[in-house]
Structures are given as structure tokens and as C-alpha cells.
Amino acid sequence: MAETGLIAAAVLAAAASVSLAADISPQRQAELEHMVIQDCGSCHGLTMKGGLGKPITPEALAGYDPEGLAAIILDGVPGTAMPPWRPLIAEAEALWIAEYLKTEKTP
């Protein structure tokens, strides 16, 4: 019985995350896309195929879920050059970026 409740909670949390990401305005999406290309691209390469940071192409991120990637975007990776972006973007925006990286054909 408790397991069913945990599964339901996980499904609701995932649905809430998706709807939050969908609520981002087209203008903000364009700003986030620009940030990915300029800021993320400065370490991960302008083609996102790697540089100082690892590749973040859809192929390289295929094994990662968007929520996990959003957590990395928000909190960074201690001991690496990956900074936390939480002071600059909201959780829904980090999830939008994660989904964008997993699906879009970045430059």
C-alpha cells in the first residue's frame, strides 16, 4: 500500500515538473536558449560537443532524466568548473533547459 503511494507521488511530481516547464513564456525560452548557447557553450563547446566541460548533446545526455540534469544545472558539480545556476534561474527554467538539451539540435 505504501509503495503505491510512493509511485503516485513520483508520478505527480513528474507531471508537475513538466507543467512548470511548459509555463515558460516564448520570450523567456529564447533567453534561456541564448544562455545555453553562450554561457553553457563557453565550457561545453559552442556545438555542445565538449570542451572544458563534458559533451551535452542529446546523444551524450540520452541516459539522463531531465529532473537529474535540472538538479545539476541548479546546483552545479562540486569540485568541477560546473557552477550552480540556482541564483539566476528557477527550477522550472532548469528543467526547460534540461529538456531542451535532450531534444534540440543545438548549434
Rank of each mutant, 00 (worst) to 15 (best):
W85G: 10
L88S: 08
E59T: 04
T106R: 09
T106C: 01
L69W: 03
M1R: 09
L95W: 09
G76C: 15
L46E: 10
A98L: 10
A70K: 03
H34T: 14
T106W: 00
I72Y: 06
S42H: 12
L12H: 12
A13N: 14
G45N: 08
V18Q: 11
G79E: 03
G63L: 10
E104Q: 14
G50W: 04
D65K: 06
T103V: 01
S42A: 12
D75G: 15
E3Y: 03
A90L: 15
A10W: 00
S42W: 11
P83R: 05
V77C: 12
Q38C: 12
P58C: 00
Q29T: 02
K105W: 00
A94V: 09
G63E: 10
T80S: 10
A15M: 13
G76R: 14
Q27W: 12
V36G: 05
L74Y: 02
P78F: 01
V11Y: 12
L6E: 11
E93K: 08
D23A: 15
M82E: 03
H44D: 02
M82C: 07
K102A: 01
E33M: 13
E59V: 05
P84W: 02
L69K: 03
M1W: 05
I37T: 10
L61H: 01
D23K: 15
P55A: 04
Y100F: 14
H34C: 13
E93A: 02
K105F: 01
A15P: 07
W85Y: 14
L101S: 00
P58H: 03
A14S: 13
M35R: 12
A9P: 07
A13H: 13
R28V: 10
T57I: 02
A92Q: 09
